[in-house]
Amino acid sequence: MAYRLRWKGSNRRRVRRNVNLSPKERAIEIALTIATWSSVVALGAVFAELMLGAIPAFLTIDIIGFFTGTVWNPAHPTHPLYGILPLFVGTLMVSFGAAAIAIPIGLGCSIWLAELASPRIRSIFKPAIEILAGIPSVIFGFFALVILSEWISIVFDPVTKLNALNGAIMLAVMMIPIMVTVAEDAMNSVPSSLREASLALGATRWETLRHVVLPAALSGIVAAIVLAFGRAVGETMTVLMATGNAPQLTFDFLRSVQTMTAAIAIDFGEVVFGSEHYHVLFAVGLVLFVITFAINFLADWVVRRYKEDY
């Protein structure tokens, strides 16, 4: 009889314990438990600290005004306004803009890599993409600031040189490697027997891809998109340097915007420690945290829910 052992990931089940542990074995187990709990605590601290920092803001400012206000002007000496909408819209514009560019191109690229590229080219291309996924965001930001914005000025003649489009394009370039890595994995894990079955029925390669491979890999592809989108929402340096940092409520891609991440990064340079503005920034951080957490959760759920085991 073949055993399916579940040494790992075996939650609901207890393993019989050895009561004759030597002191050394016991000490090691305790040390490992402590280390694990410290990481739980450290990670839990992220959320706790955000809550603690944000609560004073919700006590002093108008919560409805915070979520519906259309003006973000926290530095005003007498009448600071903390409307998160301009920042929220800024974030959405930049990340949806980036997704609109990155999804088709990234998908095309992953299909090419998984289905069309020769094994030799793939064995170079795939690690290269993974290495590129590690380029620090400040470098993309720098490129957007110095080079890309110039090109956009020539083509579109925008109102301001640093604008939402600039940020969106740069973010798209950043998102693509993440997307390609995950999506290609998903397509690669579709067993070739499925492809062969379809091809043997006289389908063309494109028809096989369209009707067999893509549906089978769909959950992985969706997860790739969602993950990359989450990264775009949370990205700070690129948008900080590329979008011009003007917190105005606009839907024009050729104007400057400010995202939630950028507002936190920039405003903390001049904020008084413990002031209302300080706590409001924590509240913005909390909103950001909730959004990205939800996005990641969604990606995870999609993978779990629709995962096909081959």
Partner: peptide, 10 residues
Amino acid sequence: MNDLIPGCVV
């Protein structure tokens, strides 16, 4: 060796 299998009671 069954000790290693989670949820196994002997």
